[in-house]
């Protein structure tokens, strides 16, 4: 059974057993506008919670994607390199960015759940 959590920087993270998948939320994808390029982390890269892990670019803005929790990158969604539009079309599905092996699942547990994130977005 997978579980999804959210950050106040508008990343989502879904935990399936040992492995977590990270992407940006629908709210973030809509705020960015048309995504034209993503820069993905290499497998094996160590990331820390809140540290930069990827970059997403629209025509006029470049934004860092932060790792919601620390760990090691196990794979990245290379389909985005050819089709960055997937981030706009399906941000919380096919538009995922990278997968992580978490070093501390406690960090995951501290993140916002779906309802908390929805309230957070409403407050913006």
């Amino acid at each position: 059974m997978s579980e999804v959590r959210y950050t106040d920087q508008h990343e989502w993270i879904r935990l399936d057993g040992e492995e977590a998948t990270v992407g940006i939320t629908k709210y973030a994808a809509e705020s960015l506008g048309d995504v034209v390029f993503v820069e993905l982390p290499a497998s094996g890269k160590a990331v820390t919670a809140g540290g930069g892990a990827a970059v997403v670019e629209s025509v006029k803005a470049a934004s860092d994607i932060y790792a919601p929790a620390g760990g090691t990158v196990t794979s990245a969604n290379s389909a985005l390199e050819k089709e960055p539009s997937k981030v706009n079309e399906d941000p919380e599905g096919e538009g995922w960015f990278f997968k992580l092996k978490l070093s501390d699942q406690g960090e995951f547990a501290k993140l916002m759940d779906k309802d908390a994130y929805a309230k957070f977005v409403d407050s913006l």
């Binding site: 920087q9 940006i24 803005a61 934004s63």
Partner: peptide, 8 residues
């Protein structure tokens, strides 16, 4: 992610 809204 950093909500960089510098562009339009």
């Amino acid at each position: 992610m950093s909500m960089n809204n510098q562009g339009r």
